[in-house]
Design a protein around this nucleic acid. Structure first.
Lengths: 344, 344
DNA sequence: TTGTACGCGTTATCAC
DNA sequence: GTGATAACGCGTACAA
């Protein structure tokens, strides 16, 4: 390693280290000429300050971290942009931290908090239940975004009411005349979004006087990535092959709904003429698919804005509403249609 | 801040700091009983070591960083998984670093290299030309992945030949009888993938004896995100409204191709009966869309595996082939069709 | 305006 | 097996 340090830069310039430091950090108390000179040699020798040493020394850092599990989820794309924009606008710096599938997000947060002297944390996509108790060890404010599950009232949360919205969708499908509505579900032991949306599905059936039929619920197999095209395809195919009668497929997510559509097409069926298909999330893609997917449109941008505003309010110790539940909108596409009396 | 440090843990345990350090880092020279005792108090007081201090002190770290611009690009999703798996399999640790749109990826790499004592770096999605010269300041091995543009022969690169593959696609379209092939392009000043694929388009036309017609090339407007559904839609719509005659749209990417399809549908046209549409990249989604999109399928997993293998070879100073160009596969979908003699 | 010296939390090298 | 102690590279109080 031929790392060049601040000391050597100082020696090279014939000044003290503090002068170099002042030049780097735009401190006022420095002669303009010396500053230019220092910056020049820095550029010349390509000196790059060591961030670890900086973080170690600094008391705080004006950094906000956004932790995401499953960073490639298109659902988060817009939201990340909002975070990026708002955080830099407020003169904070922004760290996007990917959390591996098997990692514990709160452990990662704990590490990051010390390492980067964070000012605040956003958990995008929620946190798993088993890890919630560790949250109390965090010393900086944090907001849990897009999932409302499990955590106590006092935990800052921004989300939609997944159960209610799911119920809304199924009630709509029922109002279209569908009675045999299949559900493409998460893994059976899912304790997060998957469970909530499934619960909404059951509630709507009950309210509509329809019987809950396990044969119409296709659970994601252990080890399969739940929110994938492939999984939607596989589950819909399995449903078709089961021979079970149905007129409508309600998928846990838009991506799965698209996968399901493809399975239907490949089986020579039409959507929505033969089967209706609905999704959840309101991805941009849902509107671009042919047929456009009927979905529950989560106000992602607003949720992202609310998340970051809530976090700033917590940081500034303003009084806040810690639990912000947003309304989602049912977005009718061409993938569903009312069942005519004859067809029933 | 009520951060608890290694010193306080030592005091709490009635041992020296080195003993605590040994306990944390699984050093051999430590009594099993004391180790257990130390770990117990660590858990009890929820001590979390400060990573900055560790990185500062440690000479090396067995960490490999993957830098990505546009982390939400679905094209990268699979590749990231491969990186994650292979890097941890080789007992390295893995840092996924998002680079903001306006940030310089090499600057970020330089910082990260010092901060984390990196062993190697992957630039996923290439680097911008203006920043190439700084590459020489990196002291650790790096591989540029998925874009072959600009950089010299000696720079480790894994990619497809974008120009050639683009040409392959257009030649195929010409062989289907298309003569008026519109191209949905990147911004006019693009110097990366966009430029290369455009060059391939021109080459194919030339080779096929067709005239290059600026009126059939729809350039992305300044400030619009190029690789988006919305942009594909807008450009296709602009093309339709221009009144220019064409039988086929070749889009810079699958996502844009899907946006273009929607624009055609919305205008009451059919794909491929009225117009053929082709894309580039071979996203999983291309196969799930209806109609499935004809595309150039980049071997993403293989490229990711080659990238990481190349990096490890460089780290271990093995002799390597620094420039690995992969073959892409033309994947015929239902979005294109041969033009019958009558229709021409 | 500039330079010196100390400390941030950790690990590694010694002695013991 | 264990405990002092010297680095690691930087920011900053304080002295000059």
């Amino acid at each position: 390693m031929d790392q060049i340090t601040i000391k050597e830069v100082a020696k090279l310039c014939g000044v003290g280290v503090s002068t170099v430091s002042r030049a780097i950090n735009n401190h006022p108390d420095i002669n303009d000429a010396t500053k230019r000179m220092v910056m020049e040699t820095i550029r010349k020798y390509n000196y790059v300050p060591n961030n670890s040493a900086r973080n170690l020394k600094r008391a705080d850092s004006n950094t906000i971290a956004v932790l995401i599990k499953g960073i490639t989820n298109p659902f988060f794309a817009d939201m990340i942009q909002v975070f990026e924009r708002e955080i830099t606008r407020q003169k904070y710096s922004f760290v996007l931290q990917h959390v591996e599938e098997f990692e514990d997000e709160v452990d990662t947060a704990l590490l990051l908090e010390k390492e980067k002297r964070l000012k605040g944390i956003v958990f995008l996509g929620g946190i798993s239940n088993r890890t919630e108790e560790k949250l109390s060890f965090l010393t900086v404010p944090y907001v849990i975004s897009t999932v409302e599950s499990g955590v106590g009232e006092e935990t800052a949360t921004v989300a939609v009411d997944n159960e209610k919205e799911s119920q809304k969708m199924v009630e709509y499908l029922i109002s279209c005349g569908h009675e045999k509505i299949a559900f493409l579900a998460a893994q059976k032991n899912d304790a997060s979004i998957g469970m909530l949306r499934h619960r909404g599905y059951r509630m709507a059936l009950k309210k509509g006087g329809l019987e809950y039929d396990e044969g119409l619920v296709m659970w994601t197999k252990e080890g399969c990535p739940t929110y994938s095209l492939e999984n939607g395809y596989a589950l819909a195919r399995e449903l078709l092959e089961s021979g079970k009668e149905f007129t409508c497929i309600y998928a846990l997510s838009d991506i799965m709904a698209i996968g399901a559509c493809k399975a239907l097409f490949d089986a020579g069926k039409r959507v929505p003429e033969d089967y209706s298909v609905a999704g959840f999330d309101g991805l941009e893609l849902a509107g671009y698919y042919e047929p456009s997917i009927t979905t529950i449109c989560q106000p992602r941008r607003e949720m992202a804005e609310a998340t970051i505003r809530l976090l700033f309010d917590l940081i500034e110790q303003k009084p806040v509403n810690t639990r912000q539940i947003f309304e989602a909108r049912l977005q009718q596409g061409n993938s569903t249609r009312p069942l005519s009396a004859a067809a029933r």
